[in-house]
Write a protein that binds this DNA or RNA. Structure first.
Lengths: 158, 158
DNA sequence: AGTATGCATTAATCTATGTTAAGAAATGAG
DNA sequence: CTCATTTCTTAACATAGATTAATGCATACT
């Protein structure tokens, strides 16, 4: 259980690294992403203060995700499975609920609906990351996000 | 801990129901889905023998998912959180890994890539459900699946 | 057997989002 | 402060997948 200080841009974990660690964000903001075969980055999650970020991949002990600091941050590093209790079960359940919801959004909602949902759900993150990262999290390009946002504003005015 | 016998088409849980239960599939095949505001069904998961199916939603005690039998099935009903041990943690981790992978596929892979991945990962399910259900799981329409499959075959011949 | 229902396929057309490119605005580094 | 880099926006064009509709098959129902 170590405490790590990270500078903006520091990469905490890379694809292929061991993924036996779990990181609790004590301060700052991290994000986890993949880079696909075409070299494109896709943001899997943001991790602000209080969140746990870890890659639990299907391939044992091999991370699929990169984890990187968006801001200077402090994280507490723990071994995975180092605590088994009511509280940790609740955290697992909550994580599953979040992931389930994300899948449902990706399958059933349009880009602008996903964006609206995101800014309602994570208003504090919206302020702190570039739009292109939000676009990536939503599964669209920055250009598309720019477009649907301005189309939305115009429609509201009408 | 009850054992339930289900007939094909039986709905085990509906949107809005309590979601305090967890179902272990002992025999048969179930699926979980949402119905969106436009009335469209989106399949969230299939649950063959040995799998656990449950809705862990963000809204406490309120299911977002429908759970229904695709085949005559037998499930064991348990209370959520009724066991906390190494084994259950592993199951939670595995579920999270599956969901993470699904999100990554939805964000980074084309329809045909998602289809190829699906038939490799769940060959036993492919045989037992209509194509339209696979399309729904992949996040596309049955027509689109039909199209990309035949386009794929033609490309392979070339 | 005959009819109804659900499923798969194909095709024409439409639309949301991707791609490429350029310029403007904001941010950061020396 | 200035230059370089990153970010955002807009626009023209391209494409994957959606929509609608028609047809052919199965399967199930009477």
């Amino acid at each position: 259980m170590k405490k790590l200080k990270l500078l903006k841009g520091d990469v905490l974990q890379r694809k292929g690294d061991s993924n036996s660690k779990v990181f609790l964000v004590e301060q700052g903001l991290l994000y986890a992403y993949i880079i696909d075969e075409k070299g494109k980055e896709h943001i899997f999650m943001f991790a602000p203060k209080g969140w746990i970020v870890a890659d639990i991949s299907l391939i044992p002990n091999k991370s699929e995700l990169y984890i990187e600091a968006i801001e200077d941050s402090i994280v507490i590093e723990k071994e995975r499975g180092s605590e088994i209790n009511e509280k940790s079960i609740e955290k697992f359940e909550r994580r599953i609920a979040v992931l389930q919801n994300r899948i449902i959004m990706l399958m059933s909602a349009s880009a602008i609906e996903r964006y609206d949902h995101f800014i309602k759900t994570y208003p504090q993150i919206v302020q702190r990351v570039p739009q292109r990262m939000i676009a990536s999290y939503l599964g669209i390009t920055p250009e598309a996000l720019s477009k649907v946002k301005s189309a939305n504003i115009k429609n509201n005015k009408k």
